[in-house]
Amino acid sequence: MIKSVILLANNLMLKTHFHAKQARIFTAVMLSGILSVSSGFILIQNASALPSNFLVETPQEVVKQNVKSEPLPRAVANAVLQDIKRREGIATKKLKITDSIRKTWGNGCLELPRPDEFCTQALVPGWRVVVTSGQQRWIYHTNETGSVVRRKENNSSTLRPVPIPANELPPPLDRNVVFRQISSGGFIGRTYETVLLNDGRLIRVRIGDANDSERSVRRVTSAQVRQFQRVINRAQGEFQNLSYPASRGAADYITYTLTSRKGTVQYNDISQNNLPKGLQTAVKAWKQLVSTAQ
């Protein structure tokens, strides 16, 4: 077939008056067409021999391969690290953020509700952050800006209490006193005593204030006093003259000493979320009572 076409081309060149150069071009074109047709069979036969991974990437695949995780905002990182420093007493330079990912939390509590806390059902965009320091590891849920941070607590992190030395126990309650709180420490370093009387009076004084200038007297209703007493009675097992100490190296925390008719218990503000559930309920009831006093 190829020879016949070549002879036909030569005959055409003899019969025409084209220039020799034009004839060569024409012959080359004819031969290229023939070779293309012939080689087509070879290409088709060898197509199945292509490697299985010889595939064209789709735009979606290209995008997926080149997506980079979004960096954690500095404000969020600082908020998390500062919370660990405050609660654990660990310098931020010894902490390392090992993982962070954008999340949309299913409620206003960032999916980490506190005991008896009401959470709104609004969706909250934010971050899940993991921080480590040696053998310790913490998981945080935050909002988008870091103005709200919550730490995920494990049951294994519940504090172990130690007995309060007898010479450090406060005096028993007077007959007309229902409950007493003594708070001390913090940045200011002052000590305050707040007592709840049978008649509903809440009296707060600063210990060591010679002029009694910071003394305040407020009131709650008799119904509130009875309700609070019921909560304390259910938590009497927590008032066993025990202390829940702060983490080693912690500083600038406030120590609270609570005394009921049963006994005394002591804890601090940086580890209060790790207290036994019964004691947390009693602490919450006390704070709510104080906040509603007029």
Rank of each mutant, 00 (worst) to 15 (best):
N154V: 00
F179V: 01
N273E: 14
T194I: 10
T255Y: 02
R201C: 00
E144P: 00
L55F: 00
N66E: 11
A91V: 08
A282N: 07
K64D: 15
P115H: 07
V5H: 05
R206Q: 15
V80Q: 05
S157E: 15
S39Y: 07
T104Y: 10
G263M: 07
L7Q: 13
K3L: 13
R87K: 12
Q136G: 04
R226Q: 15
Q121W: 05
A49Y: 02
A251Q: 13
A9W: 04
F118N: 13
S213R: 11
L43D: 04
R24K: 14
S133L: 01
C109W: 06
R248G: 02
A23S: 13
I90G: 06
A91Q: 12
K284Y: 01
T145Q: 10
E193I: 02
L289K: 02
T191N: 03
T142E: 09
P115G: 06
I34M: 14
V76R: 08
S156T: 13
V149H: 02
N268M: 07
L159D: 07
Y253R: 02
N143T: 03
N53L: 05
V130W: 04
V220K: 03
K103G: 01
V129L: 07
K15T: 02
G208T: 03
I44A: 13
V220L: 02
Q240D: 15
P115T: 12
Y140L: 02
S156I: 10
S147P: 01
H141L: 04
Y192N: 09
G126R: 05
I207T: 11
Q135T: 14
T104R: 13
E111Y: 02
G208E: 05
V220H: 03
V217F: 00
T98K: 11
K21M: 09
G200H: 07
R190S: 11
V148N: 09
R180W: 01
I139K: 08
I207D: 03
V56S: 08
Q224T: 14
R206W: 01
G185R: 04
T191K: 14
N154P: 00
L169I: 05
D252Y: 10
R74K: 14
C109P: 06
K287R: 12
V265N: 06
S260W: 07
E70R: 13
G134K: 07
S4W: 06
N155I: 12
V231K: 04
V56G: 00
L289H: 03
Q65C: 02
D252F: 14
C119S: 09
R128S: 11
A47M: 10
L14A: 10
G278Q: 10
R74S: 15
G189K: 06
K68W: 04
L258D: 11
A282W: 05
N155T: 12
E88L: 03
V63D: 07
R87S: 14
R234G: 01
